[in-house]
Structures are given as structure tokens and as C-alpha cells.
Design a binder for these strands. Structure first.
Length: 288
DNA sequence: CACTTGACCTGTCCGC
DNA sequence: TGCGGACAGGTCAAGT
């Protein structure tokens, strides 16, 4: 999925649009995608749209929350009925919703404006999920409860990073960064980018890192994720924001998906290897 | 126990 | 043009 910056971009988009709207209907096109009773939410108002790691949550009035995991190919696209006239009449994917990867359709009512709006949960590979759970039970939810620290929180210092990496001293750096119990929200793209920004080979073991390299790794994690948010996320194939638009982070990426191309810093050819079964990119010179 | 591989799905791309 | 295999922003479960 979408990693932290992509989910955060979606959250920012949906928050502005959905607050105060009333959920009127949920159409479930793929049963395995949805768990919980959709009817429990009908007539409830959206209070808050939040994110924790790669999970997006929508708190509803009366104590229930919708949580979403987009996994590899999930999308959440908002289709407001207000149409811009005279703008750019280019192909807008919102005009083609629902499509064959639409799994759940949410209908919201904007009562003051008397508008009906839709949110489409699309997911080509059907790995993603949506659940209804009581807001008070979020703290006990199996996935959320075990998450490591949020790397974009102010409290995520290099000391905190060092502390949470201690439990995986023999792991390759990139695998430790991708472990959600260690650090929350880093996935395959930003793990490679963070290692590049730190000047650290992703295959190095945690216990081989110097104090200074741990500091640089902290910088790399925070900087790559911040840049991810700044550029609206990474769209290798599926990711789009809540307006159906792709993100541009990969235009600025140093290594991800750039094997056989020259390093943007030293012109050395970027290499690709496999770690934990996932494609891993690095510059043999900058990260040597 | 730690570590690796497969499963979950659908689609695209690349080589033969 | 067809067909097979590898691969794709993630996470779990089973196997070694």
C-alpha cells in the first residue's frame, strides 16, 4: 500500500471533505473486504479522520470507528457532487467510479448543502480491508496495539530510534525499518530511500551501525517520509490521493525503482537486490 | 527460536 | 500474438 506518506496524503484530503457529513449508505461489492455491521453506522456523523502508521480511521458519532488498511493497491477516492465548471475537462477518474476494482462504496450526505457525496474504496488485489469497531476498542486492536513509534512525531528522536532498533541487532537495516512493530509506517519505498539518505547499505546489520550512522538513519527516515508527504506520495502504479491524483515523490526518489540508472549524487549505477523477498535499491558508492 | 517462503489476489510487463 | 514467469506501496501463517 500506500505507506505512511500516501495514507497521510489521503487523510489530509478526506479530513477537510468529510468532517460533519452523515453516512447514509454502504454498498459492499466484495464481502471479504468488509467486516462489522455497516448498518450500525447509518445516520452517524463524521467526527475525525486520523492515521496511525498505514491505517486510516474515521471516527463516527455514537462511538464507532471505521478503520481501513489499503495494503498494496487500495485507494480511497472522494467524489463530491459539486462539479467545477470551465476548469480542466480532462479525464477525471472520479467520473469513472465505480470501476472493476471498487470493493466498497460509502454514501455521505452534506446536510447543510443538501449534497450527496461518495467515497470509493478500490483495491485491485483485494488485500485491503475495512472494519467497523467501537472507538474504545481501538487500543486493543491486534494490528494497532503492536505498532512502534510514529516517525513523524516530535518525540521520535534518534535516541528513540536507537532504542527500538535494539531488539533486532542481527537484522539488515532495511528489514528493521520495515517492521511495523519497530517503527510504524515505513514500507518498501521509503525504507530504501531512508537508507540512501543515511548513506547506509540496506543489507548492513543493525549492530554494525555507528552512533553517527544511527543519527543519519534517523535523519533519512524522517526526511524521506516528510518529502513523501510534501510531494503527495509515491505512485508507482496504483496509488492516488482522495481526489484521484497521483503523487510525485518518485520523481525525486534517489534509488527506488532506479536500478540501472545513474545515482543522482555520484552517477554510479544504482543496484537492485532482494531483502526479505522485496526489491531493494541502493547506490554501491554512496552507500558503500 | 529465528529465519525464509508461500498465501492472499489481480494485473502488467518482458522474454521466448 | 500467445504463453509462462517474475514482479508489484503489505501482512500473516506455515514451513524449515
Amino acid at each position: 500500500m500506500p505507506e505512511l506518506p500516501e495514507v497521510e496524503t489521503i487523510r489530509l484530503g478526506l479530513h477537510d471533505k468529510l468532517i460533519g457529513q452523515v453516512l447514509q449508505e454502504i454498498e459492499i461489492l466484495n464481502m471479504k473486504t468488509f467486516s462489522g455491521n455497516p448498518r450500525d453506522l447509518f445516520g452517524q456523523k463524521v467526527l475525525k479522520v486520523w492515521r496511525k502508521a498505514k491505517v486510516l480511521g474515521i471516527d463516527m458519532s455514537k462511538g464507532l470507528t471505521l478503520i481501513f488498511h489499503l495494503k498494496m493497491t487500495g485507494q480511497l477516492i472522494y467524489d463530491g457532487k459539486q462539479r467545477l465548471s470551465g476548469g480542466h475537462p480532462t479525464q477525471d477518474m472520479r467520473d469513472q467510479m465505480p470501476n472493476k476494482s471498487t470493493r466498497v462504496i460509502f454514501t455521505f450526505i452534506d446536510e447543510p448543502r443538501r449534497l450527496v457525496n461518495k467515497v470509493y474504496f478500490n483495491d485491485q488485489r483485494k488485500f485491503g480491508w475495512v472494519k467497523v469497531i467501537p472507538t474504545l476498542e481501538l487500543v486493543n486492536h491486534a494490528f494497532l496495539a503492536g505498532l512502534g513509534p510514529e516517525p513523524l512525531d516530535k518525540s521520535f528522536t534518534h535516541e528513540v530510534l536507537t532504542q527500538c532498533l535494539i531488539k533486532h541487532l542481527n537484522w539488515p537495516v532495511k528489514l528493521a525499518l520495515m517492521d511495523q512493530q519497530t517503527i510504524a509506517g515505513v514500507g518498501n519505498i521509503y525504507a530504501s530511500e531512508a537508507c540512501f539518505m543515511a548513506g547506509v547499505d540496506p543489507r548492513r546489520k543493525i549492530n554494525s551501525l555507528s552512533k553517527n550512522e544511527l543519527k543519519k538513519l534517523h535523519y533519512g527516515i524522517v526526511k524521506s517520509l516528510q518529502d513523501g508527504v510534501k510531494y503527495g506520495g509515491s505512485s508507482r502504479s496504483h496509488y492516488v490521493n482522495s481526489d484521484g491524483q497521483k503523487g510525485s515523490f518518485l520523481d525525486y526518489a534517489f534509488v527506488y525503482n532506479r536500478d540501472k540508472q545513474p545515482c543522482k549524487k555520484c552517477r554510479t549505477i544504482i543496484a537492485k537486490t532482494t531483502l526479505g523477498g522485496r526489491g531493494t535499491f541502493y547506490c554501491p558508492k554512496c552507500q558503500g
